[in-house]
């Protein structure tokens, strides 16, 4: 399978410079290799820094033990589980897995309708914002991925409807985007479930100016 690549941009957090980026409409081996050889060692360093500083486990990055190769292998080739990756300067900066079939809308005005569910969305550990021991490298990776999920929803005829369970440290971000917070979901480790209402989709993707 050949991935299609869309041109995008990121902000280098430390310098404010604009960097060209790529959004791939499929995770490929190169992304998984970057995860294994670059993300994992960096993530380990961050976790050790958290341990050394005596940071409470509750404040450690919750995605710290995600295994992207395993996640991807479980769904590889399935038409109902598309994937995306963001790259910048030859390095994978973000990964996302979607599900098109298992979830339905919960918002009253579109209850029961199909939506794109974001199964997993993660940025490279050097882009984590709240971790100690480093400054984030790029800003904007999460937005590129969420936009890709919405665009996929539009392409599927789901009118841009997307839903996701946010990691606890990301609740405020999805609230800021205008997604509706359904509160803790006891069937999903009490993560908050968020859904994008139709009237926020155009403003998110920039169609209303």
């Amino acid at each position: 399978m050949t991935a299609e690549v869309s041109k995008a941009y990121l902000r280098e957090a430390t310098t404010g410079l604009v960097k060209e980026a790529e959004v791939w409409d499929s995770i490929v081996e190169q992304h998984l290799v970057d995860w294994e050889t670059e993300w994992k060692p960096y993530r380990d360093m961050i976790l050790q820094a958290h341990r050394a500083a005596g940071v409470s486990l509750l404040k450690w990055p919750q995605s710290r033990h995600w295994d992207w190769r395993n996640k991807y292998q479980c769904v590889q080739g399935m038409l109902s589980t598309p994937s995306f990756a963001v790259m910048c300067s030859g390095m994978t900066e973000g990964l996302m897995l979607l599900d098109l079939s298992l979830h339905r809308c919960q918002l009253p005005e579109q209850k029961g309708k199909h939506l794109v569910y974001v199964d997993f969305l993660e940025v490279a550990p050097w882009n984590w914002k709240t971790s100690i021991g480093h400054s984030p490298r790029y800003a904007g990776v999460g937005s590129l991925l969420l936009r890709a999920a919405i665009e996929r929803s539009l392409e599927e005829g789901f009118k841009g409807r997307v839903g996701l369970h946010a990691l606890p440290q990301a609740n405020s971000w999805y609230g800021k985007l205008g997604m509706i917070d359904f509160g803790p979901d006891s069937s999903k480790s009490n993560l908050h479930y968020f859904e994008m209402p139709l009237d926020k989709i155009d403003s998110f993707i920039g169609k209303d100016g």
Partner: peptide, 9 residues
């Protein structure tokens, strides 16, 4: 997005 965590799943 600057300063926000964005992880989901």
């Amino acid at each position: 997005e600057l300063g926000n965590e964005v992880g989901a799943g």
